[in-house]
């Protein structure tokens, strides 16, 4: 079967900063993956094409690249699925990372972020005589984040990282959660304190991109939401992120629905005068256009709000989050 690959070519030594698109049309068997096809190009047509791979079985995590606008493992992505009618397939290097050559990116950014969360067990108390005992149940909760193969796909497509390279990013946050929720780890609180800072768990914009692209079902964003739960449960409340969640809940409990005005004011901080003053002209404009809900007690209650409040009181999680419950 014929397939056409449109591959980003970039060689800083030959072409300076410019990348070009090169088209390869080749005959491949139906079961081929995009990686198989790229290897065939390299072996038969164009030995200068740079692509990184090893296991070819979705285990090692080396072959992540953007295929048809989304980060995927080349070795897990079938040609026929990407191009059921023989359409050309776009192949680009991962995003958010520095391209070394063609489809190969520098992994320093990725590993730097993972290392920053101290991705190793730091047990509490004296070492036990024999092994550390952890219950089966507690380890089951960690299976999802432990499935990470460090491929970088989530980091490639993370929309928060795209605007702020300081953001610690999905893979590192999922890894952080993996140790926070490990019953044998003694540094949970310190880890949470770091993740509660700027560029940590609150800086994720909840776009689901990492959940969509992760080839191993780690669902990093869900792990980030669990980190946030742990942060809130640990009593770390002095952040706009915490106030945002608390205000949202208060508003729904009060009237059954969201009050955007309160949400903004509460999140900035009710006594944050400079911010409130600087936002006043904007508030007035919104008000004049009928786009600003009335604050606090003036917010109209929905019929049935008592029932909503009752459910909120009953179901708001009081105990620490159960890891991996998603």
């Amino acid at each position: 079967m014929k397939t056409t690959l449109q591959v980003n070519r970039y060689d800083p030594e030959a072409s300076g900063e410019k990348s070009t698109v090169q088209e390869y049309t080749l005959d491949v068997p139906e079961h081929y993956t995009v990686l198989d096809a790229l290897i065939q190009v390299r072996e038969q047509d164009d030995p200068s094409l740079a692509v990184r791979c090893s296991c070819r079985a979705a285990i090692c995590g080396s072959c992540a690249m953007r295929i048809n606008d989304q980060a995927r493992l080349g070795c897990k992505t079938r040609v026929t699925v990407m191009a059921p009618k023989g359409e050309p397939i776009r192949v680009e290097p991962m995003g958010n990372q520095h391209v070394v050559k063609d489809l190969v990116v520098d992994l320093d950014l990725f590993w730097g972020k993972v290392r920053a969360v101290q991705p190793y067990l730091q047990p509490k108390g004296p070492e036990p005589e024999e092994e550390y005992i952890a219950s089966n149940e507690s380890m089951l909760n960690l299976l999802t984040p432990m499935g990470c193969i460090m491929c970088g796909a989530c980091v490639s497509d993370c929309t928060a990282l795209e605007v702020d390279k300081n953001f610690i990013g999905p893979a590192a946050l999922a890894k952080s959660y993996r140790f926070v929720a490990d019953p044998r780890d003694g540094q949970a609180r310190q880890r949470l304190e770091v993740m509660n800072e700027y560029a940590g768990a609150w800086d994720c914009t909840r776009c689901y991109m990492c959940v969509e692209v992760c080839p191993k079902g780690v669902a990093p964003m869900d792990r980030i939401m669990e980190l946030r739960e742990h942060i809130m449960d640990a009593g770390m409340t002095n952040t706009p992120g915490y106030r945002h969640v608390a205000s949202f809940a208060r508003s729904v409990e009060h009237s059954g629905w969201l009050n955007e005005t309160d949400l903004a004011v509460d999140s900035w901080g009710r006594f944050n005068l400079p911010k409130l003053l600087s936002e006043a002209p904007f508030g007035i404009k919104m008000l004049m256009r009928g786009k600003m809900p009335l604050p606090g007690p003036l917010h109209k209650k929905r019929p049935g709000h008592e029932n909503i409040a009752r459910l909120m009181k009953r179901l708001e999680r009081k105990q620490p989050a159960k890891a991996g419950a998603h």
């Binding site: 729904v252 929905r302 029932n307 909503i308």
Partner: peptide, 26 residues
């Protein structure tokens, strides 16, 4: 539909997924 709540918008879900799912099931 009269008397519904907010969906939670993914924010209430940070306070517990079951809470959000129950409000939507309602």
């Amino acid at each position: 539909i009269v008397g519904t709540s907010c969906t939670g918008a993914g924010v209430l879900q940070e306070k517990g997924q079951k809470l959000g799912d129950t409000l939507n099931a309602r």
